[in-house]
């Protein structure tokens, strides 16, 4: 009796585990298929390439050019990565090679809290500090006039959001480089800095690329914080002091209100699908690079 009931419990928990795993594995496939099916109507009407390269966005007239949104997303993302990556590399080198253990112990919670702050908080901070800073200090310095709600504001806010994310990976990358390698380099007479420059950075290079790639994916999908500071003007930006309108913001601002306009729904789903695809692609390539470099070691 007792044995039988144990057996049943064992089988039923196995059953639940398998079901859960299957649901988890099916979810993204369902997501991708669903997004694709919903964006089919617009894809059948207009060519994908035209949608990507047109800059006219007039849903009422059935014109859906994604170019302003895609270029805005690219501007904000790459600018933020350009700010974040050097800061992360320098910090990771400092924390793993120079700093005392105690400094790392203090920095770790700071990094973790930054990583845990909700994006709406970053957005509020951006509105409070970054936007006025750009309109009152940075833009006048270049002799420009702007409200401050710009690509640059989005990029600055975003860069601080992705820093903890990239930094945590980089710290791990530098930490896993075997100590013997450093010792070998030091014992042939290289200075600490030369060792870092010629040995560690070289060894860490694939890891740095991967971390940056993951950062790009992260930044590309970030919605609320960027939306709050970037201005949301439909126009292909030509300078960092222009307002922008990234893809996630497009979805967030318009979804839910678009059901009455034909094709609008489908266009926004296509935006979500593009977002999904790009993020997945960057994640995939970066993770593959990590796995590759681990195998080579």
């Amino acid at each position: 009796m007792r044995f039988l009931s144990r057996k049943i419990r064992d089988k039923s928990s196995l059953f639940w585990m398998v079901i859960s795993l299957v649901i988890l594995l099916l979810m993204p496939i369902l997501l991708a298929v669903g997004l694709y099916l919903k964006s089919l109507p617009i894809l059948q009407e207009q060519s994908f390439w035209d949608l990507l390269t047109e800059s006219d966005w007039k849903p009422m007239q059935g014109k859906f050019g994604f170019l302003p949104f895609i270029t805005s997303s690219l501007w904000v993302t790459f600018l933020s990565i350009i700010i974040a990556t050097p800061v992360c590399i320098l910090t990771a080198i400092y924390l793993t090679q120079y700093a005392k253990k105690r400094v790392l112990a203090i920095m770790q919670p700071i990094i973790d809290i930054l990583a845990g702050l909700p994006s709406v908080i970053y957005g509020v901070w951006g509105v409070l500090i970054v936007v006025p800073f750009i309109s009152k200090t940075v833009a006048p310095f270049f002799g420009l006039q702007t409200s401050g709600y710009t690509i640059l504001a989005g990029a600055i806010v975003l860069s601080i959001m992705v820093i903890p994310f990239i930094l945590n990976i980089l710290i791990e990358v530098f930490r896993t480089i075997p100590e013997e390698l450093t010792e070998a380099s030091l014992s042939v007479g290289a200075t600490k800095w030369e060792t870092i420059k010629y040995v560690l950075l070289k060894k860490a290079f694939p890891g740095i690329i991967s971390a940056t790639g993951l950062g790009v994916a992260r930044a590309f999908g970030e919605t609320i914080a960027v939306l709050m500071v970037v201005g949301n003007v439909v126009k292909v930006p030509t300078s960092v002091f222009d307002s922008g309108y990234p893809l996630p913001a497009l979805i967030a601002n318009n979804y839910g209100e678009m059901l009455s306009i034909p094709m609008y729904d489908s266009a926004l789903m296509l935006a979500a699908l593009i977002l999904f695809g790009i993020v997945l692609l960057f994640n995939f390539l970066s993770r593959m690079a990590i796995i590759r470099s681990e195998k080579n070691q």
């Binding site: 789903m269 993020v279 995939f284 796995i291």
Partner: peptide, 26 residues
């Protein structure tokens, strides 16, 4: 393989889930 898959999923922006969830609801 599952871990790799999860790492990929982890990066999908929440707005995509939100939009998809809304479509399912409709």
């Amino acid at each position: 393989g599952i871990r790799f898959f999860l790492d990929l999923l982890w990066g999908i922006p929440s707005i995509v889930y939100g939009a998809f969830g809304f479509t399912i609801m409709v």
